[in-house]
Simulated assay, not measured.
Amino acid sequence: MTGSSRNQVKEIRYQPEGSYPYGLEVFRVSDLRRRTSPKGMRRTYGYTFYMLILVTGGQCNQMLDFQACSGGAGSMIMVRPGQAHNFGEGEDWDGWIVLVRPDFLRAESSREDPRTGFDIDRFPAYVRIDAVDLKRAESAIEWMRQDAAFNDESSSEHSQHDPGRPAQFVEDIQSHLRYCFYALVSWIAITYRDKRTDDLRRRPAVMRFHHFKALVEQHFVEWKSIGAYAIEMGCTERSLTRATLDAEGISAKEYVSRRLGLEAKRLLIHTDWPVGVIADHLGFKEATHFSKFFRRVAGFTPQQFRSANGTSTHP
């Protein structure tokens, strides 16, 4: 991983050490600590790749998009590109980290069937798996690490299985790692799926919320009225609010406000844009309107939020 500074917050790009050729990399949290300063481990970063973190021992208190993700062994966190994340203050825990480039998830070879049905968005941001499944997940990740080590010319695996390491070998391992990752994530998503979808009486409301959630991701800047979403979905505002209350415990209007507030937080710490520019980018006609909105959803002014997160203030 390498970082480029924007403000005082780093955006981490996928760049493995040496000549490692694959779009997936596996290592331990303890390995990352050995090559990163304690201060660096506690910083908040943005990423251009996916990062799956599996806690295998100890107790951690990571932060994902400014929300605590606490847990011990069996806690899994999926960090997506653009999200704000840090590993927390504690150092008495360990786990696996799997880094995945977004383009790695799409098969480039014409020989591979692109219709895999794999959808990484089905994977929750946070899930807690039981002890039996933890062993299975650890084993799957360990095998990915070992298989990726075939590329290392100094490893015994390379010398025994691939003395010449032709390009075809690298392509085959890349494909193999891709489907190993598909299998791991799909298994977790299926095993720990939203059980409410099994209830035929509640399934329509659950599906309605997921449709709403997808639309919010696409249109939260320009569509601030719940009516716009209800029209697009062909339902009433009341049914949309009921579905959101059932899924998230908040109204549909509040859900859109929180998503807009989250984007504002990301922009405040990951860019050095003035508050007025951020306000305009998020569809506010006046910076004062944005500041009032942000204070309501975050409890701070934009400048206070920047200062609290270690970044300089911008008027």
Rank of each mutant, 00 (worst) to 15 (best):
G3R: 15
H281C: 00
A68L: 14
E11I: 13
R80T: 15
A308Q: 08
L267N: 04
T36L: 12
E254R: 13
D121C: 09
N61K: 09
F118V: 07
T311F: 09
P21M: 15
K39E: 13
I173D: 04
S19N: 08
L200Q: 10
S186R: 04
G88P: 05
S291H: 03
L260S: 08
Q174L: 05
L245N: 12
D92I: 09
E138F: 06
A125P: 04
K285N: 03
L24R: 00
G261D: 08
T244G: 07
C69Q: 11
V297I: 04
S257Q: 13
A205T: 12
F150M: 14
H270A: 11
M233E: 02
H85T: 06
H210R: 15
A243H: 03
N86Y: 13
I77C: 09
P114K: 10
D130W: 10
S175M: 14
V277N: 09
Y255R: 15
D152R: 08
K10R: 14
K265G: 07
A149P: 06
T197A: 12
V132W: 12
R13A: 08
E89I: 07
D147K: 12
E157L: 13
T197K: 13
L215H: 05
K265D: 05
F49M: 01
R296K: 12
G299E: 03
V206E: 14
K285D: 14
H211C: 12
I231D: 11
D194L: 06
F118K: 05
I231E: 11
F300N: 14
V98W: 01
G46F: 10
R111K: 01
H281P: 01
Y182I: 07
W273T: 12
H210Y: 13
E89W: 09
L268G: 09
A228E: 04
D152S: 11
K224I: 02
I97H: 01
F220Q: 04
D92C: 08
A107M: 06
E157N: 06
R122T: 06
A298L: 02
G71K: 01
V216D: 00
Y126Q: 10
P102L: 08
